[in-house]
């Protein structure tokens, strides 16, 4: 048989233009016809660590501080750390390869447990609004922030990374790996009216690297009013 490769649970029906191999993961860097956004990108290959400890403050993964309140996130260097609850946080290596898993027993490599998707670009949050009642536009929250709750009827972790004008912006989403195909189908269906298309890792890196290390804007996002029917018929 051919070379042994890993396989993502997400297989977009699009032509992969450029693929790179990383730890036996064939990572699609670029698809043809990615369009101008919004985009959905499969990041399931990104290393994800679960860290649980009675006293999380004693840990400094990659030398970084863990946010203290549940729902808070810190996106520093190439790593996003999400505080899930009193004793647990998630560490996602979004922009660079992960080092070896630290030896402390609190860490578990959960890369394989969940599918990780990025949904970003023009109208990305309008797409999300069709799939979840979670308040991604909450003016009292600063990006990046985490919400744990239902997204397309499945329990998910949703990190709102950016909020721009109107419904522009972007989020990261994880749910149990087994649901990957159903979730992607639901997202693509909801995004069809906005021209949502699959894109490769390069598109994600270009967007996300601009956000790393930046605290979110403190302003409440301006909510674009959606005129849903023409005024003068």
């Amino acid at each position: 048989m051919k070379e042994i490769q890993r396989q993502s649970p997400v297989q977009f029906k699009a032509d992969a233009q450029k693929i790179a191999m990383r730890d036996n993961w064939p990572v699609v860097l670029e698809y043809s016809n990615e369009g101008r956004g919004p985009f959905v990108v499969d990041l399931t290959h990104k290393a994800k660590w679960d860290l649980q400890d009675k006293n999380l403050a004693t840990h400094k993964p990659l030398g970084l501080d863990i946010p203290t309140l549940p729902g808070a996130c810190a996106f520093q260097k190439s790593v996003l750390i999400n505080r899930l609850n009193r004793t647990q946080c998630a560490i996602w290596h979004l922009l660079a390869d992960a080092p070896a898993l630290p030896g402390e027993p609190g860490y578990t490599d959960v890369t394989e447990s969940t599918v990780l998707l990025a949904l970003f670009g023009p109208n990305a949050l309008a797409i999300a609004e069709k799939l979840t009642a979670l308040d991604l536009m909450d003016p009292q929250k600063q990006t990046p922030f985490l919400l744990q709750g239902p997204f397309s009827h499945l329990p998910c972790q949703v990190v709102t990374l950016e909020r721009g004008h109107g419904f522009d912006g972007g989020l990261l989403l994880t749910c149990s790996r087994g649901y990957a195909r159903s979730m992607v189908h639901a997202i693509l269906d909801a995004g069809a009216e906005f021209g949502l298309r699959p894109a490769g890792e390069q598109r994600f890196s270009a967007w996300a690297s601009g956000l790393s290390g930046k605290p979110g804007s403190a302003q409440a996002p301006s909510v674009m009013h959606l005129v849903t029917t023409r005024e003068n018929l």
Partner: peptide, 12 residues
Amino acid sequence: CPNCGKRNGYEF
């Protein structure tokens, strides 16, 4: 919820 704040009852 102590972690997530006020949510729809169906989440519980």
